[in-house]
């Protein structure tokens, strides 16, 4: 394990540096990309603020300020869990994968490095936007030291689960040439089951149960619930455990599908 990491570390570092520089070069492009990510939570926030006002200031015990705290945290978690891996299809279909396969390491490592780099370079902008949302809708946070501390592993594991989930789905391109249908189904499930459109607390108990059995709740809703103090310490510990299990399961599923997929792969010669 340690040996492997010593081997991988320079690879991560190089990819990281290259990607930071690329992002700095295409500033307009990066700015637009961030803009496209902020519209969504603001829309949801506005909808729920309008509903809450219509209901006289409180919806199932949630105030506008609490919705605002929810979606501000949502932005941070979402930013970390966005995985631009839809290009897997294009890589496999156009035969670009050949070049990546002859390299001595699994291409996922370069992708992870790229992902980390793009997240860190865009983070300042995301924080700016979070502050902007806080001005539009003043949030009511009720932060405690332990919830903030528990939030960090919840956030990192949630983001990793989602990255691996999407990456593995992208591997479907080894068998079918169009994967956008698969990602479409994924996105729709995620909008309703991960707390992306609506806090899970507002959904019927059966739906929440389904969301908790599937990975969706653990990618977005759970970290937000943790930092908002909606869970007891016991629930947080159990949740972190479930996240760890999903992370383990996802990485094993990824390895398995990768192994089968690569055998399936036949390049279009260039």
């Amino acid at each position: 394990m340690i040996q492997k990491w010593a081997f991988l570390r320079p690879i991560y570092w190089m990819n990281f540096q290259v990607n930071v520089m690329t992002a700095a070069q295409y500033r307009v492009s990066t700015a637009f990309w961030i803009l496209s990510l902020v519209a969504e939570p603001i829309v949801y926030m506005s909808v729920w603020a309008a509903v809450t006002r219509e209901q006289g200031g409180s919806l199932d015990g949630l105030t506008v300020g609490q919705f605002s705290a929810y979606f501000i945290t949502w932005m941070l978690v979402r930013h970390f869990s966005v995985a631009p891996v839809a290009e897997m299809e294009w890589r496999i279909r156009d035969g670009l994968m050949s070049g990546l396969l002859v390299r001595p390491v699994n291409p996922i490592h370069a992708d992870i490095a790229e992902n980390i780099a793009s997240k860190l370079t865009a983070l300042p902008f995301v924080i700016l936007v979070m502050i902007g949302l806080a001005f539009a809708y003043p949030p009511t946070f009720n932060l405690q030291v332990w919830t903030v501390l528990a939030f960090i592993p919840a956030l990192l594991m949630g983001a990793s689960i989602r990255f691996l989930f999407q990456y593995t789905l992208g591997l479907a391109a080894f068998w079918v040439t169009r994967t956008n249908a698969i990602f479409g189904v994924y996105t729709v499930s995620e909008i309703f089951l991960s707390g992306r459109f609506v806090p899970l607390a507002l959904l019927p108990a059966q739906v929440v149960l389904i969301a908790s059995i599937l990975p969706f709740r653990w990618t977005l809703s759970f970290p937000v619930e943790v930092v908002l103090g909606q869970l007891s310490m016991e629930q947080v510990v159990i949740g972190l455990g479930i996240q760890a299990l999903w992370l383990l399961a996802m990485s094993q599923i990824f390895r398995l599908i990768w192994a089968f997929g690569v055998r399936q792969y036949t390049a279009v010669a260039g």
Binding site: Y26, V28, S29, F32, S36, A39, E40
Partner: peptide
Amino acid sequence: IRIDNILQVFQSMYEAGRW
């Protein structure tokens, strides 16, 4: 030159039109 992200911006902004 490189503004391919504009499409995403437009689409996410257009989503706002559902309400």
